[in-house]
């Protein structure tokens, strides 16, 4: 078809419009209704950190080895520990995690030898203060408590 006829008959316009109208059907809706519906994130999602506890006795799994703090490029993990004089093992006292500087790269998680530190599927991390971004041991063990919408 010659170019002028194509232009005259608006062929390209009609073809383009066809593409647009084909996707008008409600089954093609791709918009996520967040926050009414929270999206399901992938199983491996790297979100809020959690310090896992042993479900049987409620004790922390962390052995205070400091490997996560060494692995972190941003140096944002501070592990505090004392040596138990009886068992001669290090025991975790404090654990601070500065979420505001974290880039969720997952290196700390990879470094942990006992899978105590884990990046979870929680992604609602906003807080009203800067201090709210610095998570202590309790917060890390319990996980974030996002306030539900409405």
């Amino acid at each position: 078809m010659p170019e002028w006829l194509r232009r005259f008959l608006l062929i390209d316009l009609i073809q383009g419009m066809l593409v647009t109208f084909r996707t008008q059907h409600p089954k093609y809706i791709n918009t996520e209704q967040y926050p009414e519906e929270r999206p399901r994130v992938a199983e491996r999602y790297r979100g809020a950190p959690r310090l896992n506890i042993n479900p049987e006795n409620g004790e922390t799994l962390c052995i205070a080895c400091d490997l996560c703090a060494i692995a972190c490029p941003e140096n944002l993990i501070v592990v505090g520990s004392v040596r138990n004089p009886e068992t001669r093992r290090k025991e975790l006292t404090t654990f601070t995690y500065d979420l505001s500087r974290c880039m969720f790269c997952g290196l700390c998680e990879d470094a942990c030898p006992v899978d105590a530190l884990e990046l979870t599927q929680d992604f609602e991390l906003a807080s009203f203060t800067r201090e709210g971004q610095i998570w202590d041991r309790q917060m890390l063990e319990e996980g974030p408590r996002p306030s539900p919408y409405r």
Partner: peptide, 29 residues
């Protein structure tokens, strides 16, 4: 304006693969 919505629709599928694979969509590491 229209192509943007379509390209992002397909890009979303790719990002979903990334997310499933490594847990992040953009800064994947």
């Amino acid at each position: 304006i229209t192509p943007l919505f379509y390209t992002f629709r397909e890009r979303e599928e790719i990002l979903a693969i990334f997310e499933n694979y490594c847990g992040a969509r953009l800064t994947t590491h």
